[in-house]
Amino acid sequence: MNAMKVILIATMLVASNFCSSQQWITRNGSVEFFSATFVENIEATNEMASGLIANDGRFAFRVPILGFRFEKALMEEHFNENYLESTRFPNGTFEGAIANWSDALQDGQSHTVKAQGILTIHGVAAEREIESTLQWDGKAWIVQSAFTVLTAAHEIPIPKMVREKIAEEISVDVQMTLSPR
């Protein structure tokens, strides 16, 4: 009988342990960015973003920089070769915790949350609070976010010659659906 108790407790502990690390994940999230100046608009999309939310509100997002597709092949090469240095810094990441996280978010309504964490682009980390909407559709989390990135904040140099073509403030759009792991 004693042994049975131990089994029960052990099973519960192990099970609760697995429960506590419930996670939702995606590997094909979409990230778009847009640079607008009066001379030229530059747009790129990436369908290879990974995202993870744990049920304690912590999250991690990762975007392979080489996965951004541009309208012009040369722009894509310059983006990777000259600006983001993608071989040295292959991923952009955002990692942290959702500030007002609670189980009540899982009610099917769309909620605006604050994602607080460290945004790392071009190997340069910056503390950010990014507003996002989060909605539980019964099976998965739908995450949407729009925010801006300052090239200077991540030490992405823009030479004088192309300053009229590349905005200092880049708009980023994120859309992801995170399913249980």
């Binding site: 996670q23 994940i25 590997r27 290879m48 990974s50 993870l52 744990a54 912590r58 999250f59 991690a60 990762r62 392979p64 080489l66 996965g67 292959p90 991923n91 990441t93 990692e95």
Partner: peptide, 12 residues
């Protein structure tokens, strides 16, 4: 680092 839980990076 939850990032480690994401597994190997795409396009590595």
């Amino acid at each position: 680092s939850l990032l480690d839980d994401l597994g190997p990076s795409e396009l590595a």
